[in-house]
Amino acid sequence: MGIILEKTPIILNKIPGGTIALTTADFFINWARKSSIWPLTFGLACCAIEMMAAYATRFDFDRFGVFPRPTPRQADLMLVAGTVVKKMASPLIRIYRQMPEPKFVIAMGSCADCGGPFYDSYSVVKGVDKIMPVDVYLAGCPPRPEALMYAVQKLQEKIGKMEIKENSGATAGQESGARREL
C-alpha cells in the first residue's frame, strides 16, 4: 500500500493523461479510508463517557465502521475527548506521534477546543490545537453522541476530498508530527 501511494503519483505524473488514473485511485483509497475510521480508545475527561456511550448500545458507532483500537499503532483517528492539562500534553503528543499516517484528530468538547470552563486555569492547555493539528472541532460540554457522529461524518467528508498526488494523505503539517517541538 505504501509503495503504491508513494510511487504511483511520481510515475503517473510523467505519463500524459496519467493523472486521470489517480482520481480513480483517490476514489477507492478514500472510500476505504473513510469507511473504516478506527479511533484510539483514549478518554481524558467527561467527554470520554459520551464517547463510550457512542460506542455502546443505543448509538452503535460500528455502523460507521468506527471501531475503537486500544493501541495508537492501529488507530487512524484520535478523539481528544476532554480537558488537556499541561501534565498530559507531552504524553498526548507522544501518542500522536505513534499513530501511522494518515492520522486525524477530532477535538471533542469545549475543553479540547479552547479550554472550555477552565479558560483561566493555570494548568490547562487552552485547546488541543495549541499542540497538534486538529481536523474537526466539536463544540458542547459534553457533546451528545449524535454530535460526535456528525463530527465523524464531517471527517469522512474531509477524507473524501483527499488526493494522493498532493501528499500521502495527511493534512499539511501533519508529517512532522506535532505542530511545534515541545
Binding site: T83, V85, M88, F118, D120, S121, Y122, S123
Partner: peptide, 13 residues
C-alpha cells in the same frame, strides 16, 4: 495529576 485542572483555584474566581 494528568487531569489536574486547578478547579479549587478557579472557585476563588
Amino acid at each position: 495529576g494528568y487531569l489536574h485542572r486547578g478547579i479549587e483555584k478557579l472557585f476563588e474566581n
